[in-house]
């Protein structure tokens, strides 16, 4: 790193490019180490959380169940208006772009195939995940980071309450269940709005034909993988946001940085999970 002394020195700058590359290499190295440590910490946190979920299953139901319902409601119901708005937009975008093309080649019967492939299998779950991440995941990091900074984790420990059980398990389970519900609403909304937009564009397609096309293209594997994918996205977002809010001591001014990291890592992990499911679809 150049210093004030180096700038004022009469000596010429080194000719070799090595010194110019070093800060870049250092930054890359630091980034890599930080990434590895983060993955390691996240993995350990996920295992601990799953362990607590299993071993404390049924413990203090009267406290944990309402919290889980609250989180499910937050991710699955309170986001419903925005999810419906997005579903209308999604139906419009997909139909708007494909109808003209399909009309040109006389392949309206493929409209259902396109909707199942694009909306049900790919965009629906991913869009719902991004919605939950932006509205619930970020709020979770802020809430838990604040609780951590204010010493509430220590307060729970002294009361004999496992902070993972109280703070993480309801959010983890609630986000997975809520995201599944939200994805179902979003997909249904997009499929319905898709037909609406097709109707408005005078596509000669009866509702019965459209829904028959959808039903023909859907298989049991779609339902199973949709459930698995949304639960996976919800778990990833829940764990990553809880990890960044809770797993390390934070001061209040560090909460915003933790939130940014949680968003970045959640997106990367969700996309990786999405890629894994694409492979499963291709193999199946």
């Amino acid at each position: 790193m150049p210093t004030a002394t180096a700038h004022s020195s009469p000596l010429p700058e080194p000719v070799s490019g090595t010194s110019h590359r070093r800060p870049l290499l250092n930054a890359l190295g630091r980034g890599l180490v930080r990434f590895i440590l983060s993955v390691q910490g996240l993995g350990a946190f996920a295992l601990i959380s799953l362990g607590v979920l299993v071993t404390n299953f049924g413990v203090a139901r009267n406290v944990i169940h309402p919290l889980t319902l609250q989180q499910t409601f937050r991710a699955g119901v309170r986001l419903l208006p925005l999810a419906l708005f997005l579903s209308m937009a999604l139906g419009f975008v997909v139909i708007g772009q494909t109808v003209a093309l399909l009309n040109r080649v006389g392949a309206q019967q493929l409209l259902g195939t396109v909707m199942v492939t694009v909306v049900v299998r790919e965009l629906g779950p991913l869009l719902a995940a991004m919605l939950v991440l932006s509205r619930v995941g970020t709020a979770t990091v802020v809430e838990l980071g604040t609780a951590r900074a204010l010493g509430e984790v220590e307060a729970l420990e002294v009361l004999g309450i496992d902070p993972i059980h109280y703070f993480v398990v309801p959010r983890f389970a609630g986000m997975a269940a809520g995201l599944f519900a939200l994805t179902v609403y979003l997909i249904l909304g997009a499929l319905l709005s898709g037909y609406l937009w097709a109707f408005l564009q005078d596509v000669p397609l009866l509702p019965s034909d459209y829904f028959r096309q959808l039903a023909t293209n859907l298989s049991w594997l779609d339902f199973f993988l949709l459930a698995a994918k949304t639960a996976g996205f919800g778990s990833v977002i829940g764990l990553v946001s809880c990890f960044h809010g809770l797993a390390q001591p934070l001061s209040l001014n560090e909460v915003s940085g933790a939130t940014v990291r949680a968003v970045g890592q959640s997106i990367v992990l969700c996309v990786l999970l999405e890629a894994l499911f694409i492979v499963v679809y291709l193999v199946a």
């Binding site: 203090a60 809430e143 204010l150 010493g151 509430e152 220590e154 002294v158």
Partner: peptide
């Protein structure tokens, strides 16, 4: 841990719970 109680400097209450729910939390749990 349940055989001891700690009163933190400033209380360190759970900020999302009311005063009575803060007291009730260990009992309910």
């Amino acid at each position: 841990q349940l055989r001891l109680g700690l009163v933190f400097d400033g209380g360190q209450l759970l900020h999302h719970l009311t005063l009575e729910h803060n007291i009730a939390l260990p009992l309910r749990y």
